[in-house]
Design a binder for these strands. Structure first.
Lengths: 118, 118
DNA sequence: CATCTAAATAGATAGACATCGAAGCAGTCA
DNA sequence: TGACTGCTTCGATGTCTATCTATTTAGATG
C-alpha cells in the first residue's frame, strides 16, 4: 500500500488546480468508487455492525461470483479505501475513514453549497 | 441531463447500504471523476477566475488533442458535474457545486474523521 | 457570401476492466 | 492426516474507454 498524502490538507478542489501527480493519485481512488458493485461494497462494509464485514457477508449481497467480489475488494484495498484482517477462517474488511474524509474535504465547496456559483 | 436526486439528503455512506439504483447513479459520477484528466479539468474550472473556463483554456492546459478534451467535458457534463454555456465563439464550462457538495456529504464519516474506527 | 476560428461529432484503435470457471492456498475440525 | 470451507489467484473473454485524425457544425468577421 503506497502512502496516500494526496491532499496536503483538506484543500478543496476549487482553491487551485491539481497538479498531474495529485490528480493521478486521486483519480485512482475515485475510479475505485466508480463501480456500482464497489460502491455498494463500501457502503455495506461501512454500515455493517461492528464496522466490518467478511467476504461471505458481501458475496451474499450480490448475484456475482465470489472471485468477482474478491477482485473488487482487492481494488478497494489497493487504493487504500479498505483494510482487511484474517481471523480464523474469515477475512474481515473495514473502511479507512480517513481517506473518505479526505475525499469529502476535497469535494467540499469552499464556503458551503452554492456560494461559488449561482 | 437526467435528474440527480441521488441522495435523498446528505445521508452518509455508512448509515445504510446503498441500493442498486443509488449505487449505479453515484458510481457514474465517481467514474467520471476517476480519470486524471477529468479531475484536473474539474479543478481547473472550479478554480478559474469567474468560476468558468472555456474549452480553449482547457486544451491549453493539457498535451492532448482538442477532441479528447471535448470528450472529457461531455462525460463530466453528462453526469451533471459541469454545465456549459455558449457565448459568442466560445463555450464556457462551470462546475455544479451542489453535486460536489452531495458527494462530499456522502463520503463524510459520520461523527467526524476517525470516530468510526481506530 | 466566403472565410476563419472554436468546438463538437464520427470513426478507428489499442489498452483497460468486469466477469467467469478452474485451480491454489490457508485454517478448521474430525 | 485428510477432508472441508473461506478466500485469493490465474487465465480467458467480451465489453468499455481514452485517444487520435478527419470531418462537421456554429459564430464571427471581412
Amino acid at each position: 500500500m503506497e502512502s496516500l498524502e494526496l491532499l496536503d490538507c483538506c484543500s478543496p478542489l476549487a482553491r487551485e488546480p491539481l497538479d498531474e501527480e495529485q490528480a493521478a493519485g486521486l483519480a485512482r481512488v475515485f475510479k475505485a468508487l466508480g463501480d456500482p458493485v464497489r460502491l455498494r461494497i463500501v457502503s455495506i462494509v461501512a454500515s455493517h455492525a461492528g464496522g466490518e464485514a467478511c467476504v461471505c457477508d458481501l458475496t451474499a449481497a450480490f448475484a456475482l461470483s465470489q472471485p468477482t467480489i474478491s477482485h473488487h475488494l482487492k481494488v478497494l484495498k489497493e487504493v487504500g479505501l479498505l483494510t482487511s484482517e484474517r481471523r480464523a477462517s474469515w477475512v474481515y474488511y473495514r473502511i479507512v475513514p480517513e481517506l473518505l474524509a479526505d475525499l469529502s474535504a476535497l469535494l467540499q465547496t469552499p464556503g458551503g453549497v452554492g456560494e461559488i456559483s449561482r
